[in-house]
Deep mutational scan, measured.
Amino acid sequence: MKATFQVPSITCNHCVDKIEKFVGEIEGVSFIDVSVEKKSVVVEFDAPATQDLIKEALLDAGQEVV
């Protein structure tokens, strides 16, 4: 499964690193693409990962998800 999250609070590479760390810890996540320019995060994943778990990880990383 693939999901795109709009994350307007992404401003720098530190944000990218933190997002990759938090989302990458979720079992089932196979790909993460964070774009500072587009302020988006694209995640490819399989169970047990879910969109809700990914959104929670983004929030835990200090990001706003819309």
Rank of each mutant, 00 (worst) to 15 (best):
S35W: 06
D60T: 11
C15A: 12
K2D: 02
V7W: 05
A57D: 01
G24A: 08
N13P: 11
I32G: 01
E44T: 13
A61F: 07
T50Q: 01
K18F: 07
D60C: 12
F5I: 01
K2W: 12
I10C: 13
E20W: 14
K39S: 07
V7Y: 02
F45H: 00
A57M: 04
V36Q: 05
Q51H: 14
C15D: 14
K2F: 08
G62L: 14
G62D: 06
Q63R: 07
F5T: 00
D52S: 11
E27P: 11
F5D: 01
C15Q: 12
E20D: 05
S30L: 12
E25D: 11
P48I: 02
E20Q: 14
V16T: 05
D17S: 12
N13Q: 15
V41D: 02
D52G: 08
I32A: 03
G62C: 15
K39G: 09
G28L: 02
I32Q: 00
V36K: 05
E64S: 10
V41S: 02
A3Y: 11
E64G: 06
I19A: 01
G24L: 10
L53S: 08
P8R: 11
A49F: 02
A61T: 04
L58P: 03
K39T: 05
V16Y: 05
E20H: 15
A47D: 06
I26A: 03
D33R: 12
C15V: 11
D60E: 13
S35G: 04
F31D: 04
T11L: 09
G62W: 11
G24T: 07
Q51A: 14
D60H: 13
D52V: 10
S35L: 06
V43S: 00
Q63Y: 15
V65F: 07
V42Q: 07
E20R: 15
V7L: 09
G28T: 03
D33S: 13
F31S: 10
F22I: 11
P48G: 01
M1A: 07
E37W: 10
L59M: 11
Q51R: 14
S40L: 14
Q63M: 15
K55S: 05
V43L: 03
K2R: 13
V34K: 01
A57N: 02
S35V: 06
T4I: 13
S40N: 07
K55F: 13
V36E: 04
K55Q: 08
A47S: 09
I54Q: 02
K39P: 02
S35I: 07
G62M: 13
E37M: 08
I54S: 01
K2V: 11
E27W: 07
F45L: 01
S9M: 08
T4P: 04
Q6G: 08
E37P: 07
V41E: 01
E37S: 11
V23P: 01
P8L: 12
V43Y: 03
S40V: 14
P48Q: 03
T4Y: 14
L59D: 04
K18R: 10
M1C: 14
V43E: 01
T4F: 15
D17C: 10
D17Q: 13
E56C: 10
V7E: 00
E56G: 11
A57C: 04
V23S: 01
S40C: 12
V41W: 04
D52Y: 12
D46H: 11
V43G: 00
E44N: 09
A47V: 08
A61R: 02
I32N: 01
I10E: 04
E44H: 14
A49T: 02
A3H: 08
K21Q: 08
D17Y: 13
K18D: 06
K55M: 13
F45K: 00
A49L: 01
L59P: 00
V42T: 13
F5H: 00
S35Y: 05
V7F: 07
K38E: 09
G62H: 05
I32W: 04
V66I: 12
A47K: 09
V43I: 06
I19W: 03
I32T: 04
T11V: 12
V65G: 05
S40F: 11
M1E: 06
K2Y: 08
E37K: 09
C12A: 11
